[in-house]
Nucleic acid binder design. Structure first.
Lengths: 228, 228
DNA sequence: ACAAAAGTGTTAACCGTACACCCATGA
DNA sequence: TCATGGGTGTACGGTTAACACTTTTGT
């Protein structure tokens, strides 16, 4: 990083924000958390969860603080996706924005919070028109997430800590928006030793019941191989 | 992007910069373009090619302007890698920096320019200590580039427009820092129809001569499949 | 007994990898 | 003729993809 010969004044006017793309899972579909803007600019329109970065906070920290401020969600691990920096991306100000994305267990975000924060879940096939370039952000985040979800165990946050294989498969089918072969899917799962079959069954979905599984994170960290 | 309740004052003090990670290829090895800082802060130390983003330029444009200003290299297609935003990443100022990376034909950057801009190529195995978090930036860029180079035809800029297969293979071996099987490599190449074998031979490297090939970009865009 | 979801194996195609010799040429 | 780098094919193992029936249990 080198100082250019542009004046400090010019430089200072760029603002830095973060926008959070939060995925949840419901009814076998992927959903996206959006909020309705209460203030200008763009009051009343739908938006990602975003805000300005504080002078004294890391970019990553800012993402978490903003998510927590505007949704009540805390300690969510988010990954940086991309930084958007077109001059006119935001109508009234010069703002560059780094996007961060996470997947969460939808039930960790209560109806109370939804009302309190003026938020709403949207199926990703029905994302409304968003402010600025937020629709582009969402598109990129979805693509990236679909790529990563097959190679990293990032989707287990979208399920309870004990889950059945039909649930897991439905999750993957919902995320990827394609059907998967049940036997091939289960074979792959059975190769991942850190997906631990429990004694218990979940009896709510069928008469026969389906065995519950658990994702053993510590174990995964030793194997570091994931493929679905 | 939503306004937080932090004051505008606080917000304005964050500066936005871009750092460029430029790879070149020489003597079968990957090299990295660095410049020696002429001014404070960190005068005399090695640094990536970086600078502040202008108020009136897109982030992508800024990357190109800065690269051009500080190295003389023009119209290079760069990809955004990641944005670094730790509070203390830069010793004296609050600066967040987006990194961009490109691979260029080293001979397009003349000795004249190198002297003029106080720049120098370093083998990537011998990158010196850089200012701030620039070494981290380089590490991430190299990893990402090695991943991408196998799936996208981004390395052809490092070769003349006509090249031989031994050249191409040496390029890949140099970039990846591993040896590749000649027959497997050539089989893959022969499956990519947009790598067009010419009638001509290059006679400079051997008595027998090696056939020249050409990368047909338009053709590639139809097939969109690359794997080496 | 039947409906509804859970669970289970085999085969064929494909892809990645390992491996060794002949060819063309100029000196 | 020999030294040098260019060029070629095959066999094995692992991975993916396609495919249909049996099991359990509550009603």
């Amino acid at each position: 990083m080198i100082k250019s010969n542009r004046t400090e004044q010019t430089i200072q006017q760029i603002k830095v924000s973060v926008d959070c793309i939060i995925f949840g899972f419901n009814d076998n579909k992927l959903e996206l958390l959006l909020i309705k803007k209460k203030d200008e600019p763009e009051k009343g329109k739908w938006s990602l969860i975003g805000g300005f970065v504080g002078f004294d906070e890391d970019l990553d920290e800012a993402a978490n603080r903003i998510l927590s401020d505007l949704s009540g969600l805390q300690d969510i691990y988010m990954e940086q996706i991309k930084t958007f920096g077109k001059v006119n991306r935001c109508s009234f100000d010069r703002v560059i924005s780094s996007t961060y994305s996470a997947m969460i267990l939808k039930s960790s975000y209560t109806e109370d919070q939804i009302e309190k924060y003026n938020a709403q879940w949207f199926p990703i096939t029905e994302v409304p028109e968003l402010i600025f370039d937020h629709n582009d952000m969402v598109d990129i985040a979805i693509k990236r997430m679909r790529r990563r979800v097959r190679n990293f165990p990032i989707a287990f946050n979208l399920l309870p800590s004990k889950f059945t294989l039909p649930q897991l498969q439905a999750l993957y089918e919902g995320i990827l928006d394609e059907t998967l072969d049940k036997r091939n899917f289960r074979r792959k799962v059975s190769q991942m030793n850190y997906l631990v079959k429990l004694e218990e069954k979940d009896m709510t979905e069928s008469r026969r019941g389906a065995f519950l599984y658990r994702f053993d994170e510590a174990w995964y960290k030793k194997e570091k191989h994931f493929n679905l």
